[in-house]
Design a protein around this nucleic acid. Structure first.
Length: 111
DNA sequence: ATTTTGACGACGT
DNA sequence: GACGTCGCCAAAA
């Protein structure tokens, strides 16, 4: 155990709170954690999320446009999209449809 | 040890 | 809205 993982752990913690069928963005999580300009670290955390014991729904985290920029980090070619579609999210050309409606903002929806 | 590379996004132009 | 630059900072090269 190391204490410097706190940020990453927090990222995973928030990610697990994303409701089924909803999505959020790297930046939204970063902002919620008080690190508005560290969205990249959230992305890096996701990359590392495989090592976590508890599963992390990384497929529910996309960039601020609702684009599936991280799909290449999942097994197969389309796993991320398939996971989202299985939750009712519609994806066309890597772009989540009705993104604003599916977007879950931890800073607002979370206390 | 130094440089490059990113699952990103805010800002300025 | 588009485009370039900058900040962020962990890992890999």
């Amino acid at each position: 155990m190391s204490s410097s993982d706190n940020f990453f752990d927090n990222v995973y913690k928030i990610a697990r709170l994303i409701p089924y069928g909803r999505v959020t963005s790297y930046g939204a999580i970063a902002t919620y954690l008080g690190a508005t300009r560290s969205a990249r670290m959230v992305g890096w955390a996701m990359n590392n999320s495989h090592n976590q014991k508890e599963e992390v729904p990384a497929h529910r985290v996309v960039n601020r446009k609702g684009l599936l920029t991280g799909k290449h980090h999942f097994d197969g070619t389309n796993l991320m999209q398939q996971l989202l579609e299985s939750e009712g999210i519609v994806v066309v050309d890597n772009q989540i449809q009705d993104f604003q409606k599916a977007f879950w903002n931890p800073s607002e929806e979370l206390s």
